[in-house]
Amino acid sequence: MNSQSKQTDEISRTLARIKADALAVVCAVIGGVGLFAMTAWLVIKDGQQAGQHLQLLSNYFVGYSVTWPGAFVGLVYGAMTGGAVGWAIGRIYNRVVNVRQR
């Protein structure tokens, strides 16, 4: 590709920045609601004995279980974990972009 066509094919010269807080909120909602929904679905479908595998999350999320109260605990844990993941991805991404643009 020659420089001319490179130039005309450039839509934006900016490298995107991620708003870490916004990504944290999005991931928190996805994580929290996701874990709540997965737990609730198993409880509705298979009753209180369900979800042997999902139950294993209690290794990390103290107090979590595949029950209705556990679904609400999972909501909080899922949101916290999702939020942390989103925030970390956003911050690290921005840091790398800054370093590369320096």
């Binding site: 934006s12 490298l15 995107a16 920045r17 690290i92 991404y93």
Partner: peptide, 8 residues
């Protein structure tokens, strides 16, 4: 349309 940096 800002590019997302694949490396980052």
């Amino acid at each position: 349309f800002a590019k997302i940096d694949p490396l980052a």
